[in-house]
Design a protein around this nucleic acid. Structure first.
Lengths: 105, 105
DNA sequence: CAATCATATGAAAAATATATCATATATAAT
DNA sequence: ATTATATATGATATATTTTTCATATGATTG
């Protein structure tokens, strides 16, 4: 199954908390772990675990700064990706959004 | 968490078997359930369950034909999506593909 | 260099997703 | 109408993910 390579790619994105982190970084720019913890109200360890996954797929970049670890979004991939999703939602889920279980923002 | 709406969207894609179905339909055009079962070597019930999820996100379309149910890919979304993924993989995983756990096709 | 702050790691527990099994439904053929 | 074929559904079993907990590491400060 030659295409199963995308598997991890999508599962990494398919998670509320990781998407929350992505969204936060996309909106407010580079942030360190504590800031992400404060913003998302997730536990520090959960944030670290999720960031590790995001980093391993290179959806985020890491820039250590002293004892802080600053994460930033990989805009090149994430921005068009989210745009594509928005497009899909608005085209195919216009009036039947319960059908596709994706709410219109 | 305004962006959690994408959640189901990505989890639906983040599964080996559903990606196999998507890939098969993308490559060979509209197929009925039995054909998908034969091609993917999955159980019929598993295929039906997975098709239901894909349909609910409108990644595939359904055209009943007699007692057959013919599924086809939603090219408008799937094609650019896979293109985007390919791009990401080839840009960010060139030599370090173990890092992002996505193998180059 | 001991203490502290920021973050990461690994293992176990809890939650969620997926596969499987039994069965239902719908169309078609006899 | 009965039987066969194609597919779907719901409940449960199984597998995978995610969270949590305890602790480790690494940089900074006093």
């Amino acid at each position: 199954m030659i295409d199963s390579s995308y598997d991890r790619f999508f599962t990494t994105l398919g998670n509320k908390n990781r998407l929350a982190i992505i969204h936060y970084l996309a909106k407010y720019g580079p942030k360190n772990v504590s800031q992400i913890v404060d913003a998302t109200k997730l536990e520090q360890t959960a944030v670290s675990h999720n960031l590790k996954m995001l980093l391993s797929c290179q959806f985020v970049h890491l820039t250590p700064n002293g004892k802080r670890r600053v994460y930033s979004i990989n805009e090149e991939t994430i921005k068009p990706l989210l745009t594509l999703m928005d497009k899909h939602v608005s085209e195919f889920c216009k009036k039947t959004c319960d059908k596709c279980a994706v709410s219109i923002l």
